[in-house]
Design a binder for these strands. Sequence first.
RNA 1: GGACGCGUAGCUCAAUUGGCAGAGCAUUCGACUCUUAAUCGACAGGUUGAAGGUUCGAUUCCUUCCGCGUCCA
Length: 611
Amino acid sequence: MFESEFERNLYALRQEKLKQLEALGQSAYPNTFAPPGDHPLITIPGIRAEYDSKTGERLEAERIPVAVAGRIMAIRQQGKAGFATLQQEGQRLQIYVRKDAVGDAGFELYKLLDLGDHIGVTGYLFRTRTNELTIHVETITFLAKALLALPEKYHGLSDVELRYRQRYVDLFMNGVLNEADSSEPEGSRTALPSHICQDQADVGHPAQEIRVRDVFVKRAAVLRAMRKFFDARGYIEVETPMMQPIAGGAMARPFVTHHNALDIDLFLRIAPELYLKRLVVGGFDRVYEINRNFRNEGISTQHNPEFTMLEFYQAYANYHDLMDLTEELVQFVAMEVNGTLTTHFNGVEIDLGKWERLTMREAIVKWWPEEFGPPPSMVAFEKSELLLHFLDEAFQHLQRNYPQISTPTREVQGVNVERHRELRSLLMLINGQRILLRGDSTPVIKAVMESLGLPTPADPLPALPQSLGQTIAGIFEAVAERRLIQPTIIYEFPLAVSPLSKQKPDEPEWVERFEFYIGGFELGNAFSELNDPEEQRRRFEAQLAERERGDEEAHQMDSDYVRALGYGLPPTGGEGIGIDRLTMILTGARSIRDVILFPLLKPQKTVISDQ
RNA sequence: GGACGCGUAGCUCAAUUGGCAGAGCAUUCGACUCUUAAUCGACAGGUUGAAGGUUCGAUUCCUUCCGCGUCCA
């Protein structure tokens, strides 16, 4: 618990102060704050809302008696008087304590207070010479002690690691997450984590300033708005298993746990999808669930092992209906949470009122990098040989005209570094494809990639795209994903990467599926649900084959789900939306850790013992 | 998993070429009845993330490890 001797001593000292407080007739840990009836208890936000607009003259004339409680965030001693700042619910109010107003005992108590202590006061409202709304204190009631020291009052807690590990401190210190102007000299309370603001200086649209606390207030508003949206449309909210015997509904590695009494392994769910569709089979035509999913994967600014997902299903709807619904939902939530459709993310202004819709193939063509020559024609997406041939030509075009791009150096002459990174991810994919075309083995693949100056993935080599569909999806991710800053719906996905979606009637290699992107990453995934049990069984079997080829993320067989489809799933559209990521977009937070109260961190090893 | 960066007092940060580890806030003591990053005076606070190496001498250079961050996979 203690970081140092210093802290241990401080703790002991403040425990001693608690004893002195008790000697003054105060309770060290009182059960409640019960001010006398003629001083109504009011919250600090309540006071601010009601009296911020009242002038000093009016306050003096009315001499309004109040009682408030709060945490002491600042103390300014003035001899036989003093000011302090109380904080409650993220808002602050100044109090003024004079020895002649609170009496000798009251002033003794006041002098025993430390930053961080909780107190209750009674008194009346007035305005100081600088016109600040202040309580002229008459009585002080001690409520609880801070035995540990608060962080530095001006900069607050800015160490990113400490902010996450000790979120309770982060929250009451009210640090600003992203400032309106990073060069602002005065008035700012808290230094920012550098990764959040580092490149806002050179862009035209600085983020709105938002406090850590407010991010989570907004997160709650997001959830409230979503429930309001779906409840109003006749959906019912359900809860389906978090522990599942088969981790289905998505392509991801699950966490495993064990049930002792039944002696079976269970998986923390990676998605609720298959259970929700069972409910649609059962006659709940419109269902939604907001809950945690767990994926045993890496951690990044966009990934936390547990994250919150909204999933909803609507019978007699298809993916086109869901596109409309998605735009409505995001706009509704934005208005409820922010009162506006514009938001600032990563230094860019995003208009949530304007959506673009592109097929995946159109997106690849639109964002195809010119360094690789002309974009593929639509025909190239039809056959593996055609696409591989095209990629081969693109590679040669690049080699002829931009030989420097395949070099691994950071400083590439004449090529923007950001651009360089993008080109290389496509290059890597293309090389994987070309090598695959020649039937090379893993060591050969690694050697070739190394010789091309491309980063070699560690063992085991991640599964290379094995099918046309996987290649197309890979190309899309490499060329388009990070450029989709303004709201964009990407629709029509390859069958090979969509084991649960319904095929397009006219193009059976493509499915009725879309994802939507804002800020350069995926926020949601939706499709017309596959409801043919025989086709579903074949898809699962194809996935099993992928799994045997080493793709640990391939979908598992779920024969009970196939059986459920056997009873008849009506035509249904379903969608999942990442709540954390949507909250990031709506608050401007650039890391998913800034919208999750307690993000997963490695446990600390060096801890000084409590004794 | 890889590359790069960071880790110094409770907090926020300094420390020139490798040469006595410092400041502000907070804490402790003192002064001050309209301050607001209050002010003024004094005291105290350190195994420089850990271990090892090079050196007369390491916060600084090297190696390994731990934690965090960013980018990549």
